[in-house]
Amino acid sequence: MRNFKNLFLLIGIFGLASGVSSCSEGSKTFTTNEIKVKVATPSKAPAVALFAHLKEGNVEINSAANNVIAYLTTASDKDMVIAPTNAGISAIVQRNAEFKIAATVTFGNFYLLKTGKDSDNKLSEGDKVLAFQETNVAGRLFKYVYGDLNLNTTYLADVTAVKNEILTNTNFDYDYVLLAQPDVNEILRSQTAYSVYANVQTDFKAKSGGKEITQASIFVKNTSNKDDVVETLNTIKNDVDALLDNTSNLIEATKDVENEVFASKLGSTKEELKSLLDDNNQLGIGFKKAKDNKASIDEFISTFGMGKTSEEIYFNY
């Protein structure tokens, strides 16, 4: 009888412990701090770092990247600007922008697709390639990685133009196309003959000896309150880490944001963005202190013909 009593006691304790444990698992929700400083970022991939702050008044997500870059060199009230790394460093070095580079938040989302028209299925001399942004990030990276293959490359203005060319040109005869996520997935869904030929990020790493594409970075104003800025950088880092750790946090943190507003700010629907992050982080989201990643930043800006950066432009925290 006494043994039965002990057995029931044990079962009771075990049941209680499991209940408490499952309760704490179930209530593990995503939390973050409100951003105190004024932040501006271009929409789409760079804005993903701010996924948990889409409705906050201090956060401006602008669909025109040039508008955001302009905040670096004008007397705006922004304490923190997320901008293409090359444009931000250029603003600091060439136009004396009162900012320092603090961290990189996007590491490239470019992919080379084969169209099924190349007979040897190997990117080689003379192959026809359709790319975009000849003098901007995509085009510069493409030339850096594949420039010595003597390809027959045509550049269009932007990724949408490439996509529309694929969808509307009945005489489309390119062997390969350069695209960026999430457009890659959209094209793969509609063009069954297409497949991913190369991940430009991986090829960049191979070519540069392990360096990364430091596509967009956070720049902080020299005159802003350093404690607030550091707190915000830590908040963004924690958010990004939490997102990459569990992509369901994207849905949890944005449950009050309508899909249309979400798409306007982050470039695609919640489900699509989540699936891209789940699929080996195809948007290239991350958070790395710029100072610790100087070699990659120098390599990336070298594709724009810029020299090595000085230690002075890095934000210490």
């Binding site: 929409s43 507003v261 306007s264 470039g267």
Partner: peptide, 20 residues
């Protein structure tokens, strides 16, 4: 480039979702 509410912002939103 406003990405909040507004008919212009809605045009941007739909273009971002599917430019084609």
């Amino acid at each position: 480039g406003d990405t909040n509410y507004g008919l212009g912002s809605a045009i941007t939103a739909f273009r971002n979702s599917d430019a084609s």
